[in-house]
Computed example of a mutant assay.
Amino acid sequence: MGASEFRRLFRETTFHPVNGGGVVYHRKARRLFALNDAAAFVWLGLRDGKVPAALIVDLRETFGVDGTVAELWVGQAISDFKVIGDVAVSPSPEWPHQDKAEVGARGVDYQLLGQTLRIDAGVSTLKSIDSLLGGMRRQNSGTPDIAVEITDEVDTCQVHFHQNVFGIATRDRIVPEMERFVYEEMVPRVRHFLAFHAALMQCGDIGVLFAAPSGSGKSTLSAVLSSRGWRYRSDEMALLDRELGWRGVPLPPCIKSDNYSRIEKWHPSLRDVSEHIRYGRKVKYLPVQAEGNAADVTIVVFPRLGEAEAAGLTAIDPLAALTQLLSLCVYVPLGFTESDVTRLLLWHERTRYFELAVADPSEAAVALEDLCMNARGW
């Protein structure tokens, strides 16, 4: 990167110090990046106009490393900064507003994420959708925030939203299609939230965030913990608000067919639940009621369920954990500002992070309950 590119990058970003390094917020791209202490040192030096050669000398003196290591650190940091500078800038979406005349009075209302969703569909389609949203049904009143119409064709259903076709699906795929609608159309409308790939559960008064990409066992953990009395909030996406409260996207856990028999040990009711096709795989939505109020999260766990040589929970470095958590941030909304980064870091400073490596979900549950019990004395 040349000097002009660095100047542009520094104009488009803000730097926020944190123990062990710092966080860079790219305002135009609405992306967050964590830097370790050496990278943060280089960032601030370049921002102040120092050249790489001078920074190598400064790193040697400040961190007590030899010239080769200092040169490597500067080179790696500049390479990482290029990634930040090259990040794609997403266009700011215009929020669609429906006219009262467009909505009509037909359909069933569901309340989630502080919004009323009205779905106008046939009786059998609504019955299927209730496997996903049934716990959020409300009596119709007034004009909804969002309205969709699902029309039945010979073999398929069409989801109409804001005068457009949002999606077309066969009948066994319409419920996952509505799940996609919630994530793509409703979550972005929640102002001043960060959205993460994470399950959210609560043990007593302690909120626990399970941060991991899809396929990491979040739904399995959510199912076994809910069977042991934990309060379920979400198995796939969690939202952090400006008041540092965490809310889940309150959809039921999605259980894949190869996991039915395992989950049925803890939730026998899964046997009687209808099956759907989600991204080419057979799934069921576990009938567990999600809570929608905010939780105070002070523990973040990165699960790695599967065959594990060393089972148990391991505390991990906070900055490394923050880097991992930010990589799982899937949405930064319009209205997110530098002050919201400060709020995020205030939450981070009082949070503890752990990795979970347990082959047996029941063992994981016991280890997590011990962790929460110990956390009350922190």
Results as ranks from 00 to 15, higher is better:
251 L>G: 10
47 R>K: 13
202 Q>W: 04
61 E>P: 02
56 I>G: 01
373 M>Y: 07
373 M>T: 15
302 F>A: 02
336 F>Q: 00
80 D>G: 14
371 L>I: 04
196 F>Y: 08
220 T>A: 06
202 Q>R: 14
185 E>K: 13
25 Y>M: 02
242 R>I: 14
177 E>M: 13
216 S>P: 07
160 H>A: 13
59 L>I: 04
190 V>Y: 07
309 E>Q: 12
238 A>H: 05
143 T>Y: 10
303 P>N: 03
132 L>P: 06
18 V>I: 11
233 R>M: 07
253 P>G: 12
187 V>M: 05
8 R>L: 14
360 D>S: 06
115 Q>K: 08
251 L>Y: 03
159 V>Y: 03
233 R>A: 14
168 I>H: 00
184 E>R: 05
358 V>S: 01
120 D>I: 08
345 L>I: 07
155 D>Y: 12
154 V>C: 02
2 G>S: 12
353 Y>V: 03
28 K>H: 04
199 A>H: 04
40 A>T: 13
3 A>E: 08
108 V>N: 00
282 K>Y: 11
89 V>W: 04
271 R>S: 12
93 P>V: 06
59 L>F: 01
288 V>Y: 06
224 V>I: 09
279 Y>N: 05
318 P>S: 10
49 G>D: 07
207 G>E: 07
293 N>W: 10
218 K>V: 02
313 L>R: 08
184 E>S: 09
142 G>E: 03
22 G>F: 09
363 E>H: 15
80 D>L: 12
58 D>T: 15
242 R>N: 02
178 M>H: 01
14 T>Q: 03
252 P>T: 14
215 G>L: 10
255 I>W: 03
129 I>R: 01
98 Q>M: 13
337 T>V: 10
46 L>V: 12
362 S>N: 04
83 V>K: 07
319 L>S: 02
362 S>C: 03
112 L>I: 07
19 N>F: 09
315 A>N: 15
271 R>K: 08
113 L>S: 04
248 G>Y: 14
205 D>Y: 13
112 L>V: 08
371 L>R: 00
12 E>M: 07
194 L>F: 02
